[in-house]
């Protein structure tokens, strides 16, 4: 099942499919001599939830970084909402609607929760600052309680919520999440995925990178499996769950 396998993207009905959403074609990324991403092509339609799976070092994080403009690709094409992203700095991509919750969260540890959130807001984009803040606090009531606390003093789960909240402040239309469940207790992971499901229902497109595939495939409509920098499998989540290779390699983990 190497051929592209289109699933019905929910929330994108009736729109011109060609130009909308995220499209990656033939992406190649290197760190020096070391080729991390060989050849990755994938799409995320508006409002669609897609999982990007694969073992450690397969190039998942690198793919997200390339989409977000943190590392320049050597080859390939990335477009979002019909705009070619080549050479575009990250802050312009954020203004275009791309959001990334990075590996390691990358919060500002010496600043308060609220300051972290405020910094995520892009003046002139989306709702006003106060409205965006209120919305994030509705989604994560815990963050409101802790809003005067320094971000560095939060627990792992709270930090992950803050990282997601901070990315939501920019009113993204596609949110990329890099291993959101890493290092979190199972109960917190469930909570987190409930929130992500809610965001998906609101029409936010999600591209989720995970090593632990159960939750991701339960949420996503489709999935891609990355190995040594190449897409080796992709299809609807239900199909991927049943796939013998995937069963063997990852689901047993």
């Amino acid at each position: 099942m190497r051929e592209p396998h289109r699933s019905e993207p929910h929330g994108a009905r009736g729109r011109a499919p060609a130009a909308r959403g995220l499209k990656i074609r033939g992406l190649q990324v290197r760190y020096g001599e070391f080729v991390v991403v060989q050849d990755v092509s994938l799409t995320v339609a508006p409002g669609e939830i897609v999982a990007l799976l694969g073992p450690n070092g397969a190039g998942k994080t690198t793919t997200l970084r390339a989409v977000h403009g943190i590392i320049p690709p050597v080859d390939g094409e990335i477009t979002y909402e019909g705009r070619a992203l080549h050479g575009m700095p990250t802050h312009e991509r954020v203004a275009l609607g791309l959001g990334l919750v990075p590996e390691g969260r990358e919060l500002f540890p010496g600043m308060t929760v609220e300051e972290n959130l405020e910094l995520g807001h892009v003046p002139g984009r989306g709702p006003a600052l106060a409205d965006s803040l209120a919305d994030v606090y509705r989604l994560f009531p815990l963050l409101r309680e802790r809003r005067r606390q320094q971000a560095g003093t939060l627990s792992g789960g709270e930090q992950q919520m803050l990282a997601i909240g901070r990315a939501l402040m920019a009113a993204p239309t596609l949110l990329m999440l890099d291993e959101p469940s890493l290092g979190l207790a199972p109960r917190i992971v469930d909570l987190l995925y409930d929130t992500l499901r809610l965001l998906g229902e609101r029409g936010l497109a999600l591209l989720i990178v995970e090593q632990y595939v159960h939750e991701a495939l339960a949420l996503a409509a489709r999935g891609y499996v990355l190995e040594s920098g190449r897409i080796v499998l992709h299809g609807p989540s239900a199909q991927l769950r049943e796939h013998p290779n995937l069963q063997q390699t990852y689901l047993s983990v």
Binding site: H68, T90, H91, R93, V94, L107, F108, A170
Partner: peptide, 9 residues
């Protein structure tokens, strides 16, 4: 955190 600042735009 320069990396964090870049990521959020």
């Amino acid at each position: 955190n320069l990396a964090g600042a870049l990521v959020i735009g």
